[in-house]
């Protein structure tokens, strides 16, 4: 029987020193707090050279998502790694464009 799919979920994958976090669902102040704990937990234990946040399945994001990315950027700097955000849907990119994140070169 196929597993029931949750509205909000996070899957992570780690290989070749790259930790990829696939975020699925909605990012707001409420879900960002939980995503932060899960992603930081994985990053702290694996200490990857690159943390890749895959936004391909994010259906909604408010400015809490900008805080989430900025915070992970700082976390990765602390452990000597880099951050990349990939597959950002167009309507979500609009919010990133309003932040200073474009200048950090982490958005793909």
């Amino acid at each position: 029987m196929p597993q029931e799919r949750k509205i909000n979920m996070l899957q992570t994958d780690y290989h070749d020193n790259v930790l990829t976090a696939y975020i699925d669902g909605e990012i707001d102040h409420d879900t960002a707090a939980r995503l932060r704990i899960s992603i930081d937990g994985a990053a702290q234990s694996l200490k990857p050279g690159l943390l890749c946040l895959d936004f391909g399945a994010v259906r909604f994001m408010d400015s809490s998502g900008v805080g989430l990315v900025m915070g992970r950027y700082r976390q990765m700097k602390l452990i000597g790694g880099r951050l990349r955000v990939v597959n950002i849907p167009g309507h979500i990119y609009r919010i990133f464009a309003m932040s200073g994140l474009e200048g950090l070169g982490v958005l793909r």
């Binding site: 932060r36 408010d62 400015s63 809490s64 900008v66 900025m70 309003m98 932040s99």
Partner: peptide
């Protein structure tokens, strides 16, 4: 003001009103 926040420790980006206006 964009990027102004009273809660930087909580990873608030300070973009709330800027997003509403946009």
């Amino acid at each position: 003001q964009p990027l102004f926040t009273t809660a930087p420790d909580e990873e608030r980006a300070g973009l709330g009103f800027a997003v509403m206006q946009s």
